[in-house]
């Protein structure tokens, strides 16, 4: 990997201050980096804090949420030190973002062309005509037929897959160094999902961008990513290069996720499940956050939350089992 990361998140904490003095620690001490051209996945169940991590990077956290601590460096700038106005020059221009719901992510009352060009004009300061041409070219690149007509159409005239292509066209329009895709295929038909992911990867290579892919689909992780970050309860529980993580899985949570996947070469009666649900972010257990559901839970787990420790080259895991003196050592 090249020297300087495009995105460097350190000790990020995003808390939501709820009523009655409840604090939801949606993202709690998360650190990771993304290098140029790299594809990094953040996986986890609903409520694990992966989307909030993404929105924190974009600084699109709404009240009562707040980034309490940490740093988010894009190139040399700490985004958390920027004024709101300076941040608008980062969003879209240096970081593009694609959301989960293409059906509602586009403004219904403006044309596709209007929504793409306003962004190009804002960041690249070009004339309307040039932005228009650029928008047509972008739509063609993301595989939309008759782009000259489509720019005059409204979002409701397009299908979900087409709208997600438009979102991708917008995200890449200013050729950002990093694209964050927050479950970009969850709302789409299975047949369209692969097309959209392939398109994302193609765009990533074409413009040499880094891609931060948030997903709960481990199949996607396996096929498309270089590095995986597994999140649980607002924290990273395991982090490793994709191949290593999938073959030498360490954390019980990751193992649980993997056992819940159907496999081609095995014939099992029932797929594995993880008992229970993610605890609410304002009500985490005292010790390890996974302790309430972990099949290997020990007395120690209920008392102290383990640290995220390096277990192998590039392989980090947060579990008492792998600490020095732990059973697996």
């Amino acid at each position: 990997m090249s020297s300087q990361p495009v995105l460097d998140v350190q000790k990020l904490k995003t808390y939501f201050y709820l009523e009655q003095e409840l604090v939801a620690k949606a993202v709690d001490d998360v650190s990771f980096s993304v290098y140029p051209g790299e594809t990094v996945a953040i996986v986890g169940e609903s409520g694990s804090g992966k989307s909030i991590t993404a929105l924190s990077i974009m600084q699109l956290i709404n009240k009562p949420g707040r980034i309490v601590e940490g740093s988010i460096h894009v190139k040399d700038k700490n985004l958390l030190n920027l004024k709101p106005k300076q941040m608008t020059a980062i969003r879209g221009n240096h970081i593009g973002m694609i959301f989960q719901e293409p059906m509602t992510a586009l403004n219904p009352v403006f044309t596709i062309g209007n929504q793409i060009t306003e962004m190009i004009r804002k960041h690249k300061k070009v004339s309307k005509q040039i932005a228009q041409l650029k928008a047509i070219e972008l739509l063609r690149i993301v595989g939309i037929p008759r782009p000259e007509q489509i720019i005059k159409e409204y979002p409701h005239q397009l299908s979900g897959g087409m709208r997600q292509r438009v979102m991708i066209a917008m995200a890449i329009s200013c050729e950002p160094e990093l694209i964050i895709a927050d479950e970009p295929t969850t709302a789409l038909d299975v047949t369209i999902q692969a097309q959209i992911l392939d398109l994302l990867l193609e765009m990533q290579q074409r413009y040499n961008m880094a891609l931060l892919l948030i997903t709960h689909d481990l199949g996607v992780v396996y096929e498309y990513t270089d590095k995986v970050i597994v999140m649980y309860g607002g924290q990273i529980v395991e982090q490793a290069p994709t191949k290593q993580l999938l073959s030498l899985t360490k954390h019980p949570y990751t193992k649980g996720l993997l056992s819940s996947l159907p496999k081609m070469d095995e014939d099992v009666e029932r797929l594995g499940t993880i008992q229970g649900t993610v605890p609410a972010a304002y009500n985490f257990p005292v010790g390890c956050r996974f302790s309430t559901r972990c099949p290997f839970v020990m007395e120690k787990c209920k008392q102290t939350n383990p640290e995220l420790l390096q277990n192998d080259t590039d392989h980090f895991v947060r579990c008492h089992l792998y600490e020095e003196g732990g059973e697996s050592q």
């Binding site: 699109l60 608008t88 879209g92 221009n93 973002m97 992510a105 962004m119």
Partner: peptide
């Protein structure tokens, strides 16, 4: 949210 993510003022 999309409009904000695009960097609109």
């Amino acid at each position: 949210r999309t409009a904000k993510a695009k960097g609109m003022s």
